[in-house]
Design a binder for these strands. Structure first.
Lengths: 195, 195
DNA sequence: GTCTATAGATCGATAGAC
DNA sequence: GTCTATCGATCTATAGAC
């Protein structure tokens, strides 16, 4: 049965978000026009406003969804008993999860300044919650004498910054496999926080 | 003696670059208009074109100058004989140099995608040259058995990414002094690459 | 739900007076 | 060297037809 012409609400919404995500990641939020997004989807610019009240909401929804998905995925990870295993799990999870969705991660880090103050505060809150997950592991390891970390807050930020750096150079089919990258970074993190 | 009215070529140029740097760092290149830059300087938009052929050149000149200054400053650093001291020198230099000019650093790694392909290639070349400076130290340390680093290229990228992370959270007058930050990061780097 | 058309604002860059 | 004025393009967002 043919649909009523122009009725595609069930698929157009996700396609708009996907197109916006790719274009924002590639060119930056401010450099991408609503017409470009519409063109990538195959509709006219006016049609976008059936799915988002404005361009800002489009950006915020992408970032919000990414942060919630990230926290939910980490919560679903099996947590080993040993604190060393938990840290290894975090390192490998972070690299694997972020490399699987580079556009979303790029936007989450590069477009913070294009959020309204209210939206910025909400994203920052989720980002801090994720950093806290790593700091909890570091604190437990310090308490057990397994880690030697003078400042767990700074160490958490340092580790995440180091892991995020993978996104700037990793390419599928490159010199190193995902497994090899995970292991290289886990080796550095393990030593950096070790006794 | 009063100058001819409107003749300020010797100071307007630097003021334009300073205003552009601050505005690009705060809001992003694409989100800043030539009128905004002119307003911050106190001239009309048309006057900017006495100093730059276009907006793109303004961005590129800022990034180019930053990269050349960075490489020149590193070349001027006193290099200890011991490879461990050379690595410590790099870590402390990088943190200190970058925290002293956060706007320039922000632009250098946030606005790469707003460069034309030719300009991008030139900036990337300088960034690679800087990364090579760290890798040279790591390779020397590995050769001497002082460092244990399975992949010096990835380790160099990881260390620089970790150090760059300081820029996202450090605030003057905060909990930690610049000296304390340098020492915390040097401690992590030293252990991460150590035997 | 998508289209065409457009309002209303702003953009980068240029021309010409002074 | 800076100004005013403006060109031509482009922007976000909306209105109304279908």
């Amino acid at each position: 049965m043919a649909r009523t012409q122009g009725s595609h609400s069930d698929i157009t919404g996700p396609r708009i978000r996907a197109a916006a995500q790719e274009l924002f990641a590639r060119h930056g939020y401010a450099a991408v026009s609503m017409r470009q997004i519409a063109g990538a989807v195959g509709v006219q610019a006016g049609a976008l406003y059936n799915y988002t009240p404005d361009k800002q909401s489009l950006l915020f929804d992408l970032m919000q969804a990414h942060m919630e998905d990230l926290l939910a995925a980490w919560a679903d990870e099996a947590a080993p008993q040993e604190v060393l295993g938990r840290l290894e799990g975090f390192v490998r999870f972070h690299i694997r999860y972020n490399l699987a969705r580079p556009d979303a991660v790029f936007i989450a880090y590069m477009e913070l300044r294009n959020l309204t103050p209210e939206n910025f505060a909400r994203i920052e809150d989720r980002r801090r919650a994720y950093e806290d997950q790593l700091e909890i592991i570091l604190k437990a390891g310090v308490a057990q004498g397994v880690f030697l970390v003078p400042d767990t807050k700074i160490a958490a930020l340092a580790v995440i910054a180091m892991l995020n750096g993978v996104l700037t150079w990793y390419r599928d089919g490159g010199r190193l496999s995902l497994q090899e990258v995970e292991t290289l970074y886990w080796d550095m993190v393990r030593k950096a926080v070790g006794v």
